[in-house]
Design a protein around this nucleic acid. Structure first.
Length: 137
RNA sequence: AGAGUGGGUCCGGCGGUCGCCGGGCGAAUAGCCCGGAGGAAAGUCCGAGCAGGGCAGGGCACGGUGGUGGCUAACGGCCACCCGGGGCGACCCGAGGGAAAGUGCCACAGAAAACACACAGCCGAUGGCCUUCGGGCACAGGCAAUGGUGAAAAGGUGCGGUAAGAGCGCACCGCGGCGCCGGCGACGGCGUCGGCAGGGUAAACCCCACCGCCUGCAAGACCAAGCAUGCCGGUUGGCGCUUCGGCUCCUCUGUUCGGCCCGAACAGCUACCGGCGGGUAGGUUGCUUCCUCUUCGGGGGAGAGCCGGCCGGCAACGGUCGGUCAAGUGUAAUGACCGCCCACCGCUUCGGCGGUGAACAGAACUCGGCUUACGGACCCGCUCUUAUA
RNA sequence: GCGCCUGUAGCUCAAUUGGACAGAGCAUCGGUCUACGGAACCGAAGGUUACACGUUCGAAUCGUGUCAGGCGUA
């Protein structure tokens, strides 16, 4: 039976971990999430979250983090394992020539976060594999 | 009933599934049980605890507070009262000491801005000259009412008075001195005397009273790892005693007393002192009531801790008795989904549907306050108006 | 978390210790010139001095409180 746990070894904790994932430069995004991925040697997935101060006040930031953690926990067996995922919630969408900067962060709920996570993780892992393949050649 | 005013309380409940953090039991990363955001957790504006550094002591400087009395561990907080202002009233607001210690500033306008010998002006009664006896002329001189300026220019209004005027005289109001009474006091009341002292600004310097060492849990302690016992500066002389190792005193030099002074302390040679630099940013602890005893069930004591009763006090608060006392993270837990009930809001085809249980907002060493943000619901006291009895 | 600093035109800065209408350069706009443009010259517009309350006769300046933005610290 599959268990949906979320322990400390499934999280990115150290400053060096975050720097490493960012340095891999494998980034995909949709309207309200940016996701970095990097393969690790642990055999399971790890999650890191980064939400800037400008995203909102502490209540809003906490809520987004909890939603993202819950989405990761319930989707962990559907995600490609052996990767570190770093989710970044940018404060607002910057559009070129669009309807202007969005001041209020986009309203997110649990289902959209979960769907976005699954789709983006798949894309990111594909991109990462391609990248390592290119590096081998 | 309407309008208003002061204060207090609360922010869903029950059940299920899957998770997170901490504690207990446990061999256990198995399992079970228990606990898990706010009135502002916020801003970091004050005050304390706690920790490190500093410290013989005193003074200056610097910073803060500012009606009076009390409460408190302390406060710039709270309570009561006084004074001033607002409101019919309940009540609200006030950085509210000193301008008769000194200095500075008060632009423009105005004659003049703190100084009164007054710019325009009024009068010219008294004295001089002339006279048609109505008065006229010039001077000496008198005056501060009127005018204009300004935020502000030697009390205000009225009557009398005068040549014109003026607290010159009088009445009322305002002001100052003195005395008595009440009050712990700020201050108030009454009486009496004085015709009247004199601009504003102290959130300008300042004076007075009181308070204040500096830095802050990223403080600090321990362990592991790592770097470099790296660099620079300083280190007298004399008298006396001597068991020849040294010792006392004086002087000098250096350092410290994180700004200055008085003054003080320490050191003065091959080991110390002072300064600059180099390295690490991992873990434990501080850290969540504390200490202690234990037969591991618990007991006892201590806390500016919380709740309730009683007593004292107008109150803030204090005393006493009983009960109670686990949020504790560290890239940072307190969540997600579902069902029912109860509220509330919007839409409504009146069947329901939708909505983070609504606003503001998330503990980071801990307390006491202040300030700021903010949607409702409920309760209590009081005031005014209207109506009824 | 703790400790600090700064807010003036679109941008960069002034304002003589509180004194009137808050100035200057660049940028913007309109003219002159030119075939057109640039440059140059002339002129104009642009401000709740971050916001609120207070002290004062008078506040960009002084005081208090908010709101933004930034810095340091293991």
């Amino acid at each position: 039976m599959l268990r949906y746990l979320f322990k400390k070894n499934q999280r990115l904790v150290k400053e060096a971990d975050f720097k490493g994932v960012l340095a891999h430069k494998c980034c995909v995004y949709n309207d309200f999430i940016r996701l970095y991925a990097r393969p690790n040697e642990l055999g399971h997935a790890r999650l890191g979250l980064s939400i800037g101060r400008k995203y909102g006040n502490a209540v809003v930031r906490n809520r987004v983090k909890r939603l993202a953690r819950e989405a990761f926990r319930l989707s962990q067996h559907d995600l490609p394992s052996g990767y570190d995922y770093l989710l970044i919630f940018p404060p607002k969408r910057s559009k070129k020539g669009g309807s202007g900067p969005r001041e209020v962060p986009p309203a997110v709920d649990f289902e959209t976060v979960r769907q976005s996570l699954l789709v983006l993780a798949e894309k990111a892992v594909r991109k990462s594999r391609q990248k390592t393949a290119n590096a081998d050649m």
